[in-house]
């Protein structure tokens, strides 16, 4: 082989070796641990903060026990506390941090209960134009234990 060609290929070989060295330094240790990805990323994904504590934690430790037992037997028992009161994990771990106050507007209740063609017919729905004279829903209905007027 001609010397100049030898030199060219030596340069190429050096470049490839440098690449391999850099690669072995830069690729994270946990890459390939479980598959073609960074194994530590699974831990990262598991460690994201929880915001919704769940209704059970509201009834615990005599905090909101009375309200909880009322809600538990009501027709609204499928509606979890935080669906109206907002995410409360921070409040559960520190009572001084208050969650957002519940939205009491007609429109908020209407998200579920205003009549919609696409809504299953057997679901409780009202016509906002004719029902309740524009009063707040909670004026007649207890959101924690709804009943019919």
């Amino acid at each position: 082989m001609q010397p100049h060609i030898k030199r060219a290929f030596t340069l190429l070989a050096i470049a490839i070796i440098v690449f391999i060295v850099i690669r072995s330094l830069v690729v994270p240790d946990s890459f390939g641990q479980y598959g073609w990805y960074r194994g530590d990323s699974v831990v990262d994904n598991r460690n994201f903060p929880v915001e919704y504590a769940g209704s059970a934690s509201c009834g615990e430790e005599n905090c909101h026990k009375t309200l909880y037992s009322i809600w538990e037997d009501s027709r609204h028992k499928t509606v979890n506390c935080e669906t109206c009161h907002g995410p409360s994990e921070k409040h559960v771990s520190n009572v001084r941090i208050m969650p957002q106050p519940a939205n009491e507007s007609r429109d908020f209740c209407g998200l579920c209960h205003f009549r919609q063609t696409a809504r299953p017919e057997d679901f409780s729905q009202i016509d906002p134009e004719t029902h309740g004279q524009n009063l707040r829903c909670a004026y007649c209905h207890n959101p924690h234990k709804p009943w019919f007027v």
Binding site: Q2, H4, I5, R7
Partner: peptide, 19 residues
């Protein structure tokens, strides 16, 4: 650019061309 190798004899150029 020549990689400090200055062989441009007929034979060398012929080899270059082949490669």
């Amino acid at each position: 650019l020549a990689l400090f190798s200055y062989d441009i004899s007929e034979r060398a150029l012929h080899e270059d061309e082949k490669l």
